[in-house]
Design a protein around this nucleic acid. Structure first.
Lengths: 219, 219
DNA sequence: TAGATTGTTAATCGATTAACAATC
DNA sequence: TAGATTGTTAATCGATTAACAATC
């Protein structure tokens, strides 16, 4: 009974893509899919699909392909999408509000369970079906609601403090939208989404392809 | 005069992080920084910082470090942050609205130049300083405004069509928030931000660490 | 059996990082 | 000169992918 090999980080980030493709196939009543087709739908290479799926187990049938329903179950089980994942959003500015109202969350077990802000002017306001509570109540909200994931949508200046408090309160998954490098203890998962940074990467390539011509022919 | 070596993708994605750290140092009146310190601020390894920066040129001084102001200029020049980057946002739902109102964009040359939606009920509405125009005018808006970047914040169903039209109109950088794999011709840069996917990756790790106990001890 | 497709190996590719000569 | 720190090499690590035996 040797332990299963650790799933590589790169594979983990692709599992949700496969799951999305598989759910689409399922809703189209497709019952079987080849690695070739799943790769095409997911925008990757077929060998990579097979390698990735092989980390989960031998779920395919040679000469046939993968059973869509079965694979949805297995990938979903791996990702924990059948669990309930209560989320707290800290910071109800433009972005936090949008996330609070975003209903795409619900699909994979995610549920916005609490809204927290430091601004007294926002506390008590209703957004969707929830009421914004004070940052002073962060710990109690996290404790009560058994919050699993913290979304940091504050300013850069407050983000580290909020992250520290989330971690202290027992949250071990953090999604950070603040434009700052957060430090969290090992054992806590952290992912960052930074819109300005994504745009800078995009425009890097455009800038390299078509550098601004400001009169000087070369440097 | 051999052409400069191509900058690796992984390095490109870190340049904006370095730039942010450098701007922070500059605003703190720090004039010189070592790779060690810059690495710490950026959450990476010092050797990686030196390697990454070496792709841009030999901008450091042995025994001393890097001049903060000079490095800000060089990294900024590489990323094109001194250029004006007009952005069109397509899809003014919760997320599109938040992005339209997001002022963090302005900092690196990004400027929301147009808002586009297919819903006639939204056309004509003012959001911030702009008015939502019909998707029918996408091509003319992109052409007129010399739009450089398209942000796709539509539903999954419309995203590919919108992307195709953006590309036809001459946009060659697309940031996609719709939960779908887009295909774009080579020469067009595409980056994806998917909130549900980020959350699934986070909870994968939490789920692996603390699997749900539903009565069965093992499988 | 013939055709199809997986699961896995091994080769390749690219990214990370330790180490250290160069040099301020 | 002694200490500090870069720039670069080379070793290591990990991810990708072509290839193909296994097998439906």
């Amino acid at each position: 009974m040797a332990g299963r090999a650790r799933i590589p980080e790169a594979t983990v980030t692709r599992l949700p893509v496969y799951l999305r493709s598989l759910l689409e196939l399922a809703s189209d009543q497709v019952s079987t899919v080849s690695s070739e087709r799943l790769a095409e739908l997911s925008g990757v290479n077929a060998a990579k699909v097979r390698k990735d799926l092989s980390y989960l187990g031998s779920y395919g049938t040679r000469g046939v392909g993968y059973d869509v329903g079965f694979l949805v179950d297995q990938v979903g089980r791996e990702l924990g999408t059948t669990r309930d994942w209560p989320v707290v959003i800290v910071g109800l500015g433009n972005l936090g509000r949008a996330l609070a109202n975003y209903h795409g969350f619900g699909t994979r077990g995610f549920r916005v369970a609490a809204l927290v802000d430091a601004d007294p002017a926002l506390v008590g306001e209703s957004i969707g079906e929830l009421t914004v509570v004070s940052i002073d109540q962060l710990e109690s909200v996290v404790g009560q609601g058994q919050v699993a994931v913290g979304i940091v949508a504050t300013t850069a200046g407050s983000a580290q403090d909020v992250a520290d408090r989330l971690v202290s309160a027992g949250v071990c998954s953090i999604l950070n939208f603040a434009p700052v490098v957060l430090s969290v203890p090992s054992g806590v998962s952290l992912r960052n989404v930074d819109l300005s940074m994504e745009l800078q990467v995009l425009t890097f390539y455009q800038h390299q392809a078509h550098p601004q011509h400001l009169g000087s022919a070369s440097v």
